[in-house]
Design a protein around this nucleic acid. Structure first.
Lengths: 222, 222
DNA sequence: ATTTAATTTTAGATTTGTCTAAAATTAATT
DNA sequence: AATTAATTTTAGACAAATCTAAAATTAAAT
């Protein structure tokens, strides 16, 4: 039986989870900053979270989520990202205007609702910003990372890093309309010289050489 | 610019609106009963609602929603019913299990969200229980009320009242599976004797005479 | 028209989440 | 190592929404 938490509790768990991801270590000040609140308020909440066994905490010594706390945080994140996906894919919102609304929707409690929504959306693996969506058990598959040569045909992917960052390469990529975050797919591979034809989102087709392809890394689902 | 209200405030406005519909006059006790709270708490909230000009109130003398209060209540009801429609039509929930979830969803504040949802659902006129959905200006079209003879073919309608309530009529209707709230549609009209063939929801076809048809009133949208 | 009953309101307390200001602890600097 | 600075925690207060118990008002009944 899933316990019900207040929105405030859920927000703290989510914030701590996110801060843990980047630094590993989280401080009272970090959380206060993240949640636009005061350190004293954070301390108050830390005590409550500890009492609910959602957090391991010794005063002045730092804190981290318990297994249970992490589990709850992942469910909030799951809800947030599924709602974002819904807003963009079904209600035609821009990916940049959904965060605020999802901040509210993520606190709707029904588990059945979120599992039905997941199904309705076709079990998407990542949200409109490319962040992975945990499944109903809290597991998520990190997007696969490959260079363009190894990207399957017709698979939409997002540019995640550039190997050779020389000015010449960056000029070429700039010219072709390829940057970090650009969404694209490989439409054709020429066996003769391993050059590729790419469809770049919101643009026309471009061709890149094997050399370029080897240095453009992308991530995609599956 | 739309002001933001607390969930509690919204629940009170909604409750008072609904109680006003039936009785016309609403008492402190009614509201306490409806919201599963105490009369003293209701009085407290009445004062807050008055301060926000959502309510006309003089102590011991009774109260009613102001125009503004009614407007806000209608927007909550709009949200509640649109979400119910969404849950049933898109996420395949049963009409009997959506109320609780909609009680939470109705407090999501974004107006843009609800207008987009409305559009996505095709601007439905009534929710899964047959209650009308106010439009974004708070107007709603009451379902049309006619006897079975005047119900257009293949139009799903809901039995809303019975003219002749004699035991004989009620026995006949009971036997055919027709009761208040039953959803049905007219599949065929026989000009010869004005008898009708009806498809009753979740049941097989039945035939009723003109005499019966004249005494069964239904409501439907459009 | 009193008395009794029901309803409504006030007064004061409680809970949750927040705050400020001051105290306690830990970290940084000379 | 001692002092200063930064961080974290405590203590006490506050706003929102609720509660109980008692007082005020209105309605019902003799």
């Amino acid at each position: 039986m899933s316990v019900k938490y207040t929105s405030s509790t859920e927000n703290y768990l989510k914030a701590i989870f996110h801060l843990q991801k980047s630094d590993g270590i989280v401080t009272t000040n970090d959380v206060a900053n993240e949640l636009q609140t005061r350190p004293a308020s954070v301390t108050d909440m830390l005590k409550k979270l500890k009492a609910q066994k959602l957090l391991i905490y010794e005063k002045y010594k730092g804190f981290k989520l318990s297994n249970e706390g992490r589990k709850v945080a992942l469910q909030i994140i799951r809800k947030h990202r599924l709602w974002e996906y819904f807003l963009v894919e079904k209600l035609s919102f821009g990916w940049d205007e959904v965060h605020e609304i999802a901040e509210e929707l993520e606190h709707i409690s029904s588990k059945k609702l979120i599992d039905r929504l997941d199904e309705y959306l076709g079990f998407p693996k990542s949200d409109p910003h490319g962040d992975p969506i945990p499944d109903s058990n809290g597991k998520f598959t990190l997007p696969k990372q490959v260079d363009l040569l190894n990207l399957p045909l017709n698979k939409v992917a997002e540019v995640s890093s550039i190997g050779d960052q020389s000015p010449e390469m960056l000029e070429l990529l700039g010219d072709k309309g390829i940057a970090l975050g650009t969404k694209l797919e490989v439409k054709k591979k020429f066996a003769f010289d391993n050059s590729l034809e790419l469809k770049i989102k919101n643009q026309s087709m471009v061709t890149v050489s094997e050399h370029v392809a080897k240095n453009v890394f992308v991530k995609y689902d599956e």
